[in-house]
Amino acid sequence: MNGKYMFSLLAIFVLFLLPYVGVTAFGLKTLFGIFIPLIALTIFIIGFVRRIKGWSESPVPFRIPTTCGQQKSLTWIESSPIDNPTTKAGVVVRMILEVMLFRSLFRNLKFKRESNGILSYSWELWLWLGALAFHWAFLVTIVRHLRFFAEPIPYFVRALEFFDSFFRVEFFTDAFQVGLPGIYMSGIVLLAAAIYLLARRILLAQVRYVSLAADYFPLFLIIGIAVSGIMMRYASKVDIVGIKAFTMGLVTLNPTIPEGVGATFYVHLFFVSVLLIYFPFSKLMHMGGIFMSPTRNLTTDTRAKHYSNPWNYPVKTHTYEEYEDDYREKMIDAGLPVDKELAEVKE
């Protein structure tokens, strides 16, 4: 047992009980349905902006890109305009590849010590694949949810839903009905990828060793969001019309509590609220930070162009004059040219 993930799991359990008991036993629907989500959204926006602002306030004194390709030097040597970008356009492409396709993670290798003592490195794509699936599925799921916050539903949301639910299976039992609404791949992939990332963190000794509670917590939370969402869609079949009326009320700041919506909805909403509140204070800020990483987002033309350091200051150096004063006689004896002859100094 690892205290760190048990702590996080326990935290999620408590966070589950709060809305569940709050709504079913105490009827705190307004608190969990309206106040907490609005406060959470406010904290998220203010917190996110403050973090980005905090980072921007620290200057970038030196340009320190990690060069991952051939530099641009002699005209007849082919350079890497993306992995060693000398132009802003190259940096933009590098950043797009980094943000959208996790290019650096794509390089991932796995080190192994063979029985004969030889070290070998093999291409290891699972982390990249899991991470990419996780993030894209999350994005699609979020965009898909815009259907609850806009009327009429924007065209791109409908298009996305169409492709996302392209995979339709009809499967009915008394307890569980799958089929008619169409399965959203994004939800399933999100859940599967989050479980993979969690399993990896727990099962791989090295990753477990470096993990903090703060690494398990968001995974448990997102799994909680995905499970509650999937439950609502495929099992408990919540009243979509009622929810839409409620969410539209939220965005128009004229919220009303819907009737006939079960506790699962409040749990889902509360988990999302917790995620929003937690986000700006956690490692999840890597979402904003990646754009500000000086090893990736700068041009590599540091010898071709002059760049200034805003806090550059003069330093004490050992000047040539001092150096010559220290060694003048020896220099003259060795036949090295000097700026001042011995006679000049003695005067």
């Binding site: 620290s58 982390l127 990753v207 490692k283 890597h286 930070g289 500000m292 090893t295």
Partner: peptide
């Protein structure tokens, strides 16, 4: 140094401990 180097500040904040660097 946090105030003078964005690199330092960002690198202190955004690591998710994915472990990709571990055996590099």
């Amino acid at each position: 140094r946090l105030d003078k180097f964005r690199s330092f500040k960002v690198f202190m904040d955004i690591c998710v401990r994915c472990g990709a660097c571990a055996d590099k």
